[in-house]
């Protein structure tokens, strides 16, 4: 018997494209937009969410039969808040500069709708192993969008990837800059993230017409 049955594999693969948390389910957009000006921050955010969602889904799934349904929101918030505090403290200890860049957005993982959405929709009704896979799948889908947006914003906006110059030196006019190319400052400002995500949605829905919404 394989480690993952076909159904389990779908739990991981579906959210990557056709059931993507950001572009299809419209969850977790706040943080996806605010921190994607640099690829580094996007990657760390994606990993943090993966940890919180994977672990949180397992915890909630284990407790699903003992949580009274009336106070489940508060219980869920406490579980997420605890996990986010762990992430925040780890970031502060090992990547202080990055934790300054992310600032309040690490704390805002708590109210990231993906997390509450998956707890409500999946972990409360399924066993721990399947919930874990669902958490990993959804955070991968979230991470992919973050990394795509971060890639384009950093490449076109500052001409770097992970802080390493790709196109040459914009001040000394070497590499691509010698041909008259300029960095697009527009990509650095926050609203550009919305437009990049809008374009990703456009591309995705043109490729798969079944996803097109009614007006």
């Amino acid at each position: 018997m394989a480690l993952l049955s076909k159904k389990d594999t779908n739990l991981i693969l579906d959210p990557l494209a056709d059931n993507n948390p950001i572009t299809i389910q419209v969850l977790g957009i706040c943080s996806a937009l605010a921190i994607t000006a640099e690829l580094n921050a996007s990657l760390v955010m994606a990993i943090s969410v993966m940890f919180v969602l994977g672990a949180g889904n397992v915890v909630i799934s284990l407790m699903r039969n003992i949580i009274p349904s009336k106070i489940r929101i508060i219980v869920q918030l406490i579980v997420v808040a605890t996990l986010v505090i762990i992430v925040d403290q780890v970031l502060k200890a090992f990547a202080y500069e990055l934790s300054k860049t992310l600032a309040v957005f690490v704390g805002l993982i708590i109210t990231n709708c993906i997390i509450m959405g998956r707890f409500e929709a999946f972990a409360l009704a399924n066993g721990p192993w399947r919930s874990f896979l669902d958490g990993i799948g959804n955070s991968l889908g979230y991470g992919i969008i973050l990394i795509i947006v971060g890639f384009f914003r950093e490449l076109l906006g500052s001409g770097t990837l992970f802080g390493i110059p790709v196109f040459g030196d914009p001040i000394a006019k070497t590499g691509l800059y010698s041909t008259g190319y300029e960095n697009n400052g527009f990509m650095i400002i926050p609203p550009a993230a919305l437009i990049v995500v809008g374009i990703i949605i456009w591309v995705q829905r043109s490729r798969n017409p079944a996803l097109v919404e009614e007006n």
Binding site: T23, V26, P191, A192, A193, L194, I195, V197, G198, I199, I201, W202, V203, Q204, R205, S206, P209, V212, E213, E214, N215
Partner: peptide, 13 residues
């Protein structure tokens, strides 16, 4: 393909 969510994102931008 832009209907609904897509155009809302771009307008917000």
């Amino acid at each position: 393909p832009l209907r609904g969510l897509g155009i809302t994102f771009i307008i917000t931008g």
